[in-house]
Write a protein that binds this DNA or RNA. Structure first.
Lengths: 244, 244
DNA sequence: TTTGGGCAAATCGTATGCAATCTTAGCGTT
DNA sequence: AACGCTAAGATTGCATACGATTTGCCCAAA
């Protein structure tokens, strides 16, 4: 099980202007975060400080800071004297994540309908085009990109809503949702997801916040309905298995 | 301005069973957190790594970890190569905090009404008694305790709701609200706040979630209405001033 | 008196070393 | 052959050391 994680992580994904000379731990966090939500790093994967450190050419101190941040947002779990692991959310956690989204996202939609500009709409259409493109491709890479793009739709919405606190909450919820889908997802989430995104956007464009919010709730319901949250209930064996 | 912060922090407030032999940074975070939401540490106060470290008899490493956590939940702001400071939320941030609460807390109430037990109710009544007691006392200490108790009501509600993710969001929102009230509060928040808490609890006891949620929204509106979010708008000077 | 430059103190950012803890492999016993 | 025990290896927790950056002071020059 001494599989190296190096090939799973894209070390040069920082964009030029993102290249602020500061906070390398932030960049590492971002890189690991992307790897996790892209499902290149599976739940349960161990992220040792020294390994992460040497991968990014920093000391354990910096790597540790990045892992702490990820632990704070629930993407990794740290066990004392054992290390950090990509989170393995339980079905109960999954339910709570979606319950939270059902609560927050309609509010975000309601805020977004007040502030969205034609430029935003155009940007959304571009994004939805991306989504569709990946949807029609085959292969695991396209599948990952599709899931990422699907999440980005929700994050763009939060950004348009203009509440940075809710935006941060959504960052966390979308990232953790991605983990949950990786673990419990049954089918391609997006065949339904994509059309629902366009429906929400259409309602927003017409200024119909009520309808957009309703559509968003249904959308979240559909995502959660595609999950299989029953099986792993009683065992706990699976936990140990994926942690090993 | 070289005032020592040591007298502002209660170093021995960890309860015996909280004395897990691990994660001292967590204990430090908790201690600082309480000091901030109790307003013993004013917004803008500098929290240097070495000072915090020596106060709690740990190295800068663990002090730094505690400050990072606080920065993550928005209670302190760190500036590169300058240090960490107790956050100084802007009026805009304040509005976003309360907007978020208006969105989340009705949902928490709705979840709580389904799960609340008679034991919970009794516990709430005890808590409200505390609140009233502090309300009738005079002096800054009682005032602080009153604000703390008022926030605890909301946190207990989140706990009863049974969604740990929302609970964590509320932890953050209530803590930051305390900062906002410290900065922009006009009067005693609680003379109205207390009775509103009891009203919410009464509705919950009767199982009337609709009414409880409405009452909660009004309650949040009242808290925000008590703030003076206008004055500091145009300047930006004040910001620099309070950071110095 | 005021302004500008430069030096010194303080603080942060990061690397590294040591002790403590956990895991695992090997060995002996039943 | 299975089980338990011990010791070595690996990994984290934490402290400390050193370089980098910023701040504030002081003094000189206009």
């Amino acid at each position: 099980m001494a599989m190296n994680i190096s090939e799973k992580i894209n070390l040069t994904e920082t964009t030029p202007e993102d290249r602020s000379p500061e906070d390398r731990s932030m960049a590492i966090r971002e890189s690991l975060r992307n790897a996790i939500i892209d499902r290149r790093l599976a739940p349960g994967t161990k992220l040792s400080e020294s390994e992460v450190g040497s991968l990014f050419d920093v000391s354990r101190t910096v790597a540790r800071a990045a892992l702490q941040m990820l632990a704070f947002e629930g993407l990794v779990k740290t066990e004392r004297n054992r290390g950090a692991f990509v989170s393995n959310p339980s079905p109960e956690e999954a339910r709570q994540i979606f319950a939270s989204r059902r609560l927050i996202e309609p509010g975000i939609v309601a805020a977004a309908v007040e502030r969205i500009t034609p430029e935003d709409i155009a940007e959304f259409r571009r994004q939805l085009g991306e989504e569709e493109r990946y949807m029609n491709e085959r292969g695991p890479a396209a599948r990952r990109a599709e899931i990422k793009a699907s999440g980005d739709f929700h994050l763009m919405l939060a950004s348009v809503a203009g509440n940075v606190i809710l935006q941060r909450f959504m960052d966390e919820l979308v990232a953790r949702s991605s983990l949950v889908i990786a673990l419990y997802g049954r089918s391609g989430v997006s065949s339904c997801g994509h059309s629902e995104h366009t429906a929400v956007l259409d309602a927003l464009e017409k200024g119909d916040g009520e309808r957009a919010a309703k559509l968003m709730i249904h959308h979240i319901d559909h995502i959660e309905a595609d999950l299989d949250l029953q099986v792993k209930q009683g065992l706990g064996l699976k936990d140990a298995l994926s942690l090993a």
